[in-house]
């Protein structure tokens, strides 16, 4: 879920940097010292999830899990995504420095939207209601990211319309897979430790030490 270097016009790159900087600033301001450590460790866990491959026929797709990230981290998804993308760019040459802003927005903005749409009453849900919300959180977050990716690609010109459509089509199985995995993971976490999804002010009295 990256736009590569060299494609987008400077205006789009600049807009991405500004939007990402605003999101990261909000995310960092909302993290106190406990949550900063937790967000750092969680962002490593989400990075690990991108190594998990689900086979589809002869090919396979890897997990993104930005929906789950949004549910657990809220606005802190912005700095967490920025950190993960920076590491991917430096270690593997995926994405790159000039597209860091755009790619952060593509992945983190839908995660924050997911947080606002689904987090509020998740801890009270059980059964099908929980599964459906988990599925929608995972699937819609990735769908929104694909829409943003296609939209940014179109700022480079009409010539990229075909590529944008092909990418969007290629992501349809990813959207379904993300929905299924997020539903299972969110359901698991809500049942095992519902206080993770409690309203913000109750979080500080959290989990027993492991």
């Amino acid at each position: 879920m990256h736009i590569a270097e060299g494609v987008l016009p400077p205006e789009a790159l600049g807009a991405g940097v500004l939007a990402a900087a605003a999101g990261v600033a909000i995310g960092l301001r909302r993290l106190d010292e406990d949550e900063a450590v937790r967000a750092g460790v969680l962002s490593a866990a989400f990075f690990t999830a991108s190594f998990i491959h689900i086979p589809i026929g002869p090919a396979s797709v890897h997990l993104v899990l930005t929906g789950l990230m949004g549910l657990l981290l809220g606005w802190a998804a912005f700095p967490a995504v920025l950190v993960a993308l920076t590491l991917q760019a430096i270690l593997f040459g995926m994405g790159g420095l000039t597209v860091l802003g755009v790619n952060t927005v593509i992945m983190a903005a839908p995660a924050v939207a997911c947080y606002h749409a689904f987090r509020r009453d998740l801890a009270q849900r059980r059964g099908p209601g929980l599964a459906v919300r988990g599925f929608l959180a995972g699937a819609l977050t990735v769908a929104l990211s694909v829409a943003l990716l296609a939209g940014f690609l179109l700022t480079a010109g009409r010539e990229f319309a075909g590529l944008a459509q092909a990418l969007a089509a290629a992501y349809i199985p990813v959207i379904i897979i993300e929905g299924g995995v997020t539903a299972a993971a969110a359901g698991f976490l809500v049942r095992v430790r519902p206080q993770l999804f409690a309203p913000r002010e109750e979080i500080s009295g959290h989990a027993p030490p492991g």
Binding site: A49, I52, L65, V181
Partner: peptide, 9 residues
């Protein structure tokens, strides 16, 4: 895989 991810988190 979802349960594995949950356990990992």
């Amino acid at each position: 895989q979802g349960h594995l991810v949950g356990a990992l988190l």
